[in-house]
Design a protein around this nucleic acid. Structure first.
Length: 424
DNA sequence: CATCCACCGGAAGCCGGGGAAA
DNA sequence: TTTCCCCGGCTTCCGGTGGATG
């Protein structure tokens, strides 16, 4: 009755690990297309000369942090902008340069980057900040990984700041994902009351421009931050960005118009550089898998569609099967009929049919209506008020925002759709 | 202009699951 | 463990709405 986990060596292995077909080092397909694939990784930070079209943003953010070099307190910064507009990139770049420049003046600056999507409670953020900044050799403090509350982490933090740094820049990425404002409160208050003999600069990054409205007044007044809004990249900038990553591929693998095409697509859709690069990478992978030597327009188009389905699934993640039924109904209606807008009741009748067909239970019309509104809020469908097309009253018409095929594809990918035991 | 129609949308209350309290 | 309570998803009910209709 030992609950010892089986050791890895107990498992069957191939006789010669060096030639294990599962993990073949000499697999030629892996080297056919890519030269330095790591250039296409998400976190890849290019050199400053390779940051495209963000010169003024870099300059403005730097201006707020500049006092640090003269060991004066820096200003706080709040950055808004959609995903993939270079917010994290620019802040990381600027803070790093600030750190170096300050170092040259003998000012000891620490930087921390916290992804609030991962560390979404204030205790976790406090822990993450404190533990990254703590240099055990210098402070002699060892900070427990667990077991203490946020208050204690802050106590440690002030201690660490006092002992190690003249100034610290804290980057809070995706602050809007934080459950509460406590972190901002603590940090900004510490800065005011001079709890630590150390300057504190906060760079908060948010995807949502409305975030500031949600912040409570006290935080706002003590933060007193400068705000910047990053606009999405345009096609030219995207093209430049991708040109800079061309080295990821082998010489001559990318056919002529691949990059401009991807850039044009991406600019039109979202202006998200990260997605554009992902599409590029995925196109390369597709080519590789198919054993093609060139990445063509064809691959890009496939990768493009893959990205859209992917994005849509992301949007759909967490919604119930019932919601998928409803979207499915709407998608079918759109496909069957020529029109694209349908009233709640039309969608409901189609939805009823589908549920019957799949032997799932049927929600009330009112609920379907509510769910549709919810999806409208999430941006999956678009609902418009109309002066009754068929005569009576005003009601809502809904239509899919995404391409019908993409909706169908991602909805149908849900495994519950083809199984019979649906009873949610 | 009054009436009607078909949907809108808020309010109240039901129900089952999950966590806290006993 | 049982009991209680809360919460979120859902239904039911009902008054409101505004163009269409005659």
């Amino acid at each position: 009755m030992s609950d010892e986990p089986p050791r890895l060596s107990d498992f069957d292995t191939t006789d010669d690990p060096a030639s294990d077909p599962l993990f073949n080092v000499n697999d030629e397909t892996t080297t056919q297309v890519f030269e330095r694939k790591e250039l296409l990784k998400v976190g890849h930070v290019p050199q400053s000369t390779r940051i495209v079209g963000r010169d003024s943003e870099i300059e403005s953010v730097a201006a707020e942090l500049r006092p640090i070099v003269r060991s004066d307190p820096p200003n706080n910064v709040m950055i808004y902008g959609k995903t993939g507009t270079g917010k994290s990139l620019v802040t990381r770049h600027v803070t790093e340069r600030a750190r170096q420049a300050a170092g040259a003046q003998d000012v000891d600056v620490g930087t921390v980057y916290v992804d609030c999507a991962q560390h979404n409670t204030h205790t976790r953020v406090a822990r993450s900040i404190t533990r990254t900044l703590n240099d055990e050799d210098k402070t002699g403090i060892s900070i427990p990984r667990t077991g203490i509350g946020s208050g204690e982490y802050y106590d440690y933090l002030w201690e660490v700041l006092d002992r190690c740094y003249d100034a610290v820049i804290i980057i809070l990425d995706e602050v809007d994902r934080l459950e509460s404002d406590d972190v901002l409160m603590q940090l900004s208050r510490a800065r005011e009351s001079g709890k630590a003999d150390c300057h504190l600069g906060i760079v908060a990054i948010s995807n949502k421009i409305e975030y500031r409205d949600r912040l409570n007044e006290r935080v706002k007044s003590s933060l007193r931050e400068e705000e910047f809004v990053f606009q999405p990249y345009d096609a030219n900038q995207l093209r430049d960005i991708m040109e800079h990553r061309r080295d990821a591929f082998k010489e001559g693998v990318l056919t002529g118009d691949v990059i401009p095409l991807t850039a044009a697509f991406a600019a039109q859709e979202h202006g998200d550089a990260r997605k554009a690069i992902e599409i590029l990478r995925h196109a390369g992978e597709l080519a590789e898998r198919q054993g093609d030597e060139l990445v063509t327009e064809e691959h890009i188009r496939d990768a493009q569609e893959w990205a859209e389905v992917d994005r849509f699934e992301e949007l759909l993640r967490g919604s119930t099967t019932q919601v998928k039924f409803i979207l499915y109904a709407l998608a079918l209606l759109t496909k069957e009929n020529r029109g694209s807008e349908f009233s709640t009741s039309e969608i409901f009748t189609r939805y009823q049919q589908i549920c019957k067909q799949l032997d799932a239970n049927v929600l009330s019309e009112h609920r379907v209506y509510e769910l549709l509104k919810e999806q409208a809020f999430l941006g999956v469908v678009e609902s418009t008020r109309t002066g009754g097309g068929r005569g009576q009253g005003s009601y809502l018409e809904h239509r899919l925002v995404q391409d019908t095929d993409i909706v169908l594809k991602s909805v149908l990918r849900d495994s519950r759709f083809d199984s019979i035991d649906i009873d949610e």
